[in-house]
């Protein structure tokens, strides 16, 4: 059934910063929510013309098809290096990278750490779902201990394969990092918090004081072999003990002129 919309006002609709292209993501994938939240913030802040995004390699490789702003595709793992160049040529623009855990925490670990260490004035959005989703759910550096993937069918053995890489904590220790936080999109409250964190990051970017880094703990229904609803439940029970949401590094009060 559809109620009549007569006499009612629109309180929520798709923002023009998202294109009408159908997203190729699996049903229930967090990428869609994160895309939408970033684009809503850019639309609401009125910085559509001043923002340049850098797309990664991974599931979100086609991010430039969905985000209706200026975008640049980067080589695998090198989104932060490309963003460094973009920001240095256009210091007055807002620059952000959008990367998954295979891109940022595996092949691009070196670029990521050195970009933050240089304190490049960009926002890095890191979507962490603990598997390589695009290639079929293989083990990533961020895969949980004991978690079964197609390349760790008996569960990740910490003795031979190492522990989950908490790159966000690693980055928070670097002096170039201004704002480091971990959020998620499993519930309405979490999505609202993520939106605030992204808003804050673009505000901080105006101050030119260092790198902003937002990790989004995300699901992968296809890679985890669950329904979207089950995967969000599993995320709360299993991902959060290892990747607890919350601010890890916030600037000292004088950084913001309220």
């Amino acid at each position: 059934m559809e109620n009549s919309t007569n006499g009612l006002e629109v309180v929520y609709e798709k923002v023009p910063t998202l294109t009408d292209t159908l997203m190729h993501y699996c049903p229930g994938c967090s990428h869609g929510v994160v895309h939408r939240v970033i684009m809503e913030v850019i639309h609401e802040m009125g910085i559509t013309e001043q923002t340049i995004g850098v797309a990664p390699v991974g599931c979100s490789v086609f991010a430039y098809n969905y985000m209706n702003i200026d975008m640049q595709e980067a080589a695998h793992g090198r989104a932060t290096a490309a963003a460094t160049g973009v920001k240095r040529v256009h210091p007055d623009k807002f620059v952000f990278t959008y990367q998954g855990d295979g891109d940022l925490a595996a092949i691009g670990t070196g670029e990521t750490i050195h970009t933050v260490n240089r304190g490049e004035n960009i926002l890095m959005v890191f979507v962490n779902n603990g598997v390589y989703g695009m290639t079929g759910g293989q083990m990533a550096p961020t895969t949980l201990a004991g978690m079964k993937t197609t390349t760790s069918p008996f569960g990740r053995d910490v003795a031979t394969m190492g522990s989950p890489l908490r790159i966000t904590e690693l980055i928070a220790n670097l002096p170039g990092a201004l704002y480091v936080t971990r959020q998620s999109v499993h519930s309405t409250a979490a999505v609202r918090k993520l939106k605030k964190a992204i808003q804050l990051s673009f505000e901080y970017q105006k101050l030119n004081q260092g790198t902003c880094f937002i990790e989004v703990v995300s699901n992968c229904p296809s890679g985890w072999k669950m329904t979207p609803v089950e995967s969000n439940q599993w995320l709360v029970e299993n991902m959060f003990p290892v990747y607890p949401p919350g601010d890890i590094k916030v600037p000292k009060p004088p950084a913001v002129n309220n």
Partner: peptide, 25 residues
């Protein structure tokens, strides 16, 4: 059902931005 209050919770979690929410002024 016609019990919708226009709280926008559904639209906020929708990965594909398919929901438009209306509410009385």
């Amino acid at each position: 059902a016609d019990t919708c209050t226009g709280c926008v919770n559904c639209a906020i979690v929708c990965p594909d931005s398919v929901i438009t929410v209306y509410r009385e002024p």
